[in-house]
Amino acid sequence: MSEEAAWALIGATVGILGSGIVNWLLQGRQFEHEKTMFDLQHRSASTVKEIFDEMLNHQKFVERSFKALQSRVGGYTDDELRQFLLELGAQKIDKNGEERWYLRSRKDE
């Protein structure tokens, strides 16, 4: 192998390794960014569930109207809020044409 070919091979190898390292670092940063964004999006949903759980576990009020629950949070559609309630173990009832929610675990109260 000639000296020029050896230097070309060394240059290509260094270029490939350098490019690989830079790409690996950039992908690591992108992954951390996406993970942070995912956590922030789901932290908001967790906060909404905590608010609903607190409201539905109140000693005085076994059930709450959907309007009362909805008034405490913003930024979500009605269907998303209903999904959060279902995930908490809440159940919907209709009382005098009003949508009300209670926790199934408190059904006997």
Rank of each mutant, 00 (worst) to 15 (best):
G20T: 14
G20W: 09
V22Q: 13
V22Y: 15
V22P: 10
V22G: 10
N23Q: 12
N23R: 14
N23G: 08
L26F: 13
Q27I: 00
G28S: 03
G28L: 07
G28F: 09
R29V: 02
F31E: 15
F31T: 15
F31Y: 15
E32F: 12
H33L: 14
E34N: 12
K35R: 12
K35P: 04
T36S: 14
M37V: 13
M37A: 10
F38E: 10
D39F: 14
D39C: 09
Q41S: 10
Q41P: 01
R43C: 09
S44K: 15
S44E: 15
A45V: 07
A45G: 07
S46R: 12
S46P: 12
T47W: 11
T47Y: 10
T47R: 14
V48M: 09
V48L: 09
K49V: 07
K49D: 11
I51T: 10
I51G: 10
I51D: 09
F52D: 07
F52H: 06
F52W: 07
D53G: 15
M55K: 10
L56Y: 07
L56A: 08
L56I: 12
N57H: 13
H58E: 14
H58T: 11
Q59I: 01
F61A: 13
F61Y: 15
V62S: 06
V62A: 12
V62P: 07
E63I: 07
E63R: 06
S65G: 03
S65Y: 02
F66G: 04
K67W: 07
A68S: 15
L69D: 00
L69V: 03
Q70T: 02
Q70M: 05
Q70G: 02
Q70I: 02
S71Y: 03
R72A: 01
R72Y: 00
R72G: 00
V73E: 00
V73Q: 00
V73H: 00
G74M: 03
G74E: 03
G74S: 08
G74D: 06
G75T: 05
G75Q: 03
G75R: 03
Y76K: 01
Y76I: 01
Y76V: 01
T77P: 00
D78K: 01
D78E: 11
D79N: 05
D79W: 02
E80P: 03
E80S: 02
E80G: 05
E80L: 05
L81W: 01
L81V: 00
L81I: 01
R82W: 04
F84W: 06
F84K: 04
F84V: 05
F84C: 02
L85C: 07
